[in-house]
Design a protein around this nucleic acid. Sequence first.
DNA 1: AGGCGATACTTTACGCCATAAGGAGATGTC
DNA 2: GACATCTCCTTATGGCGTAAAGTATCGCCT
Lengths: 255, 255
Amino acid sequence: MTVYAGQGDARRSLALLWGAPERPRTGRSGPKPGLNVDAIVSAGIAVADAEGMEALSMRAVGERLGRTAMALYTYVPGKAELLDLMHDRALAELSTGLPAGPPPADDWRAAVTAWADGLYACYLRHPWMLRVSQARPVLGPAELATMESLLRALRPAGLPPRRLRGAVAALWQFVRGLAATTADARAAAAATGVTDEDWWHDRSARLAELAPDFTDRFPLLTALQSTADGPPQDSHPDTFRTGLTILLDGLAASC
Amino acid sequence: MTVYAGQGDARRSLALLWGAPERPRTGRSGPKPGLNVDAIVSAGIAVADAEGMEALSMRAVGERLGRTAMALYTYVPGKAELLDLMHDRALAELSTGLPAGPPPADDWRAAVTAWADGLYACYLRHPWMLRVSQARPVLGPAELATMESLLRALRPAGLPPRRLRGAVAALWQFVRGLAATTADARAAAAATGVTDEDWWHDRSARLAELAPDFTDRFPLLTALQSTADGPPQDSHPDTFRTGLTILLDGLAASC
DNA sequence: AGGCGATACTTTACGCCATAAGGAGATGTC
DNA sequence: GACATCTCCTTATGGCGTAAAGTATCGCCT
């Protein structure tokens, strides 16, 4: 299941994302909070990382914190908002790991490549991120910072402003899409215990059985499959590299 | 929620996709089937088109056919397989609508653009497709045909085989990713009754409130936002166009 | 003609899910 | 000490996919 996010109460969600000032602690009665938003977000990420998005339930998160599911609702309006927070927190790994120094000269190709590599790796560390809806972006600080850093990397390329939006979209979607493919393949391999290679072999055999005219109907596909050095096992890094090169070439051509 | 597919029993799924020969009808007792796989797939698509992926339940599909949810299990192993079938059926719209004539000369840019436009439109007609997992592709006939037709469009470009995989991935992921963004924006607008423009306005205002140092922290983003002709309302077609141009330029540069 | 096995479909049930509603106990201010 | 407030719990509602088992219907065979 893909999980919707960015669907929650916009006001509360944004406030939580940007660390809105909590209500003043003075003059409040009642027991002290035993939990906090950060801890809940961390627990959520831990669950999702370890057991995947489909295992991420309010119960599971609560359990990890020694609480019931309902306890979380004191701190977070609902699951959608929790997802927003998790997504932005995970994305924040990108900026924290980076060198704080000045941007690396004018080599924008290297800079964009580094950006793409970082994002790709982040998605693969947290595959559940790929199941969070992307439209109407959550607009958390980390998401905006990631965008800003891509723009910074692209700056020396001198793209005309009109093209910038398209460039950003193409790059981001490519990284995200390829990460999704890679992540899903890994997940499937892990779940079924079948390697990618075996799986393709199996499917190919069955396809040949079900569609005897396969090579006639899909000649170019057949050719593609045979030109590559063997089955597409672990072809993902390669595909990522060449796709990115194509994108960079396209950017270069755009002035 | 993103919905997993391609997770079902591979054997039955593939057989259904490729229209495996049903067991011989002669010599079978029992009541005649009142349903068939095609009808179920159509009903599923109707439900998903009309009410979105989150409303697609076995109960809902059964109801549309005047049956209970459990009746479907006579024809289809489970929900995952039904999703696979729905996805491939929807993708089949691409090839049925096309001119049957020979490929259009050597203008590969036009051909690829046509392919991308068609796929983009298909995704927007059936936004639920974007919530179907993409790794370990289902390998239904329509999916393979779509791939084949992209390869056919790309052929005159004369890409070296080593680059083909990356090119296909970059194009497909870009189209899919941008379609997802567009579709989600539309869905959110429809659900909340807030136009994209209003929504952005609202969020911008709140962002400025929550992060007063916004323009300092994100100077390039701020610049990007102001260069565009107004808010990004309906900027999707534009973004799609320019992103695609960049990709095509990149392909051209790759020989 | 009658019976029997296969098949289509239903009902029921199980264990999940998110979360609404309301209550219990702890903690602070007055 | 009274009371308001806050955390966290229990319970309940209405959903989900689907396992299991029951019922009704049909076709073949004796």
